[in-house]
């Protein structure tokens, strides 16, 4: 069993940057386009995803020896669906206003490819602690992506941040429109790619010296 050799911190940073679910892996894009209109939405959905990812990762890594290989995927699905139901019920009960804002997307976490993927490639091979940090990294990576998108769209679209009016006018209403989510992600991905090329080039040059 190829357990990970990375430290917890590396695992966390890996999810946050190198394998950022939104900008690098390009998984779970639907909410990133649909409801990243404000920072608040981003944080809330981020919390929900973080919860589901961490709890699912931990559950799977705890019971990994008891899972029959032939029902691996159904077990993952069941685990994820359970935790999604839990967070769905909790959010609906205690923060109804925010839950309304996120609409159907909380329940759609169940179909997020990113969570199943982490269970399959990481949690089922590693112990509880690394799985926990991997889940944290992925969850925070998702939240980070959502918040960045939300912040840009909220400032450009509404001239506000976290609901507080900071600019006093609306520079480009276009960015609030859901269609702008596609453009935003396209450009953010391009920026990530560009930074990566620069970084790699720099490293190569340093090596050459």
């Amino acid at each position: 069993m190829p357990a990970t050799t990375k430290t917890n911190k590396q695992l966390f940073v890996n999810g946050l940057l190198n394998e950022n679910p939104i900008f690098r892996l390009a998984l779970s894009m639907c909410p990133a386009v649909g409801i990243s209109t404000t920072v608040m939405n981003g944080i809330l959905l981020g919390v929900a995803v973080l919860f589901v990812q961490v709890f699912s990762s931990c559950t799977i890594s705890l019971i990994k020896h008891h899972i029959h290989p032939r029902i691996r995927i159904p077990t993952y699905t069941l685990t994820i669906a359970t935790w999604v139901t839990v967070i769905d019920l909790v959010l609906a009960a205690y923060v109804p206003a925010a839950y309304e804002a996120m609409g159907i997307f909380v329940r759609l976490i169940v179909a997020f490819a990113i969570i199943t993927m982490r269970l399959e490639v990481f949690a089922c091979k590693n112990d509880l602690v690394p799985s926990f940090w991997d889940g944290m990294g992925m969850g925070f990576g998702f939240m980070f992506g959502m918040v960045v998108l939300g912040a840009i769209r909220e400032i450009l679209g509404m001239g506000a941040l976290l609901g507080y009016d900071i600019l006093g006018f609306r520079p480009m209403l276009f960015f609030v429109l859901p269609a702008a989510g596609f453009f935003m992600i396209g450009f953010m991905m391009a920026i990530f790619n560009y930074v990566e090329t620069l970084y790699n080039r720099g490293r190569k040059e340093r090596k050459a010296i």
Partner: peptide, 20 residues
């Protein structure tokens, strides 16, 4: 295995439902 996991999952969800 499937039955047990379903039972566990069901009781978790049912419990949370009752509380919330």
């Amino acid at each position: 295995a499937l039955t047990i996991s379903c039972l566990v999952a069901g009781s978790v969800m049912g419990g949370v439902f009752m509380v919330t």
